[in-house]
């Protein structure tokens, strides 16, 4: 009687031990390697997130080769505009310091559409101190040019006031001389 009680107790204790041990082992098998290094998640996921390939460069990375555009872009009013916004991403153009593709060049009406993304007076909430806006086609009428003109026929897109200031200086000279 006494023996069988002890035996039963031993069996119960042993089976709990086996179950707990087996459970722990099973859990260990199921848990990913780096689980719990920082918290209840896989620490390797941080490394994986950090290794996502970069697609956008910086303006400096574009200017390394495109020095002609850089000369004007850095000085003009458009200096804060990212090259890649209009032209496309760095990763589509360069891989391992080699050219892998040509970025499309924006033409005619596409340029006007791009300009009006920001410079459209019709959209309120664009403050004078942040950006200069124009109403189309009123701006073209005011400047007495054809309303079919595109923005880049007067404004150099990288430094929008380059030609304007120059033209004013030339016409100013003529006005003074007449």
């Amino acid at each position: 009687m006494d023996l069988s009680y002890r035996l039963r107790l031993l069996i119960v204790v042993l089976s709990i031990g086996v179950l707990a041990g087996g459970g722990l082992l099973f859990k260990q098998l199921l848990l990913p390697d780096s689980f719990g290094d920082y918290g209840p998640y896989r620490a390797d996921a941080i490394t994986e997130a950090a290794l996502v390939p970069i697609r956008h460069g910086t303006n400096t990375s574009c200017f390394k080769c495109h020095s002609h555009e850089a000369k004007f872009h850095k000085k003009g009013r458009h200096q804060t505009i990212s090259c890649e916004f209009c032209h496309g991403t760095y990763a589509d153009h360069i891989a391992d310091d080699k050219k892998i593709g040509t970025l499309p060049v924006k033409k005619e009406k596409e340029i006007t559409t791009l300009c009006l993304r920001c410079h459209n007076t019709e959209i309120k909430a664009r403050h004078e101190e942040v950006i200069k806006t124009v109403a189309m086609p009123n701006h073209l009428k005011d400047q007495t040019v054809k309303i079919t003109h595109n923005c880049n026929q007067c404004h150099y897109v990288h430094a929008p006031l380059k030609y304007i200031i120059r033209a004013k200086q030339i016409t100013g000279l003529m006005e003074a001389g007449s």
Binding site: G76, R77, Q169
Partner: peptide, 9 residues
């Protein structure tokens, strides 16, 4: 004008 910086912000 050519050597002067354009009035950037």
């Amino acid at each position: 004008y050519l050597v002067w910086p354009m009035g950037g912000d």
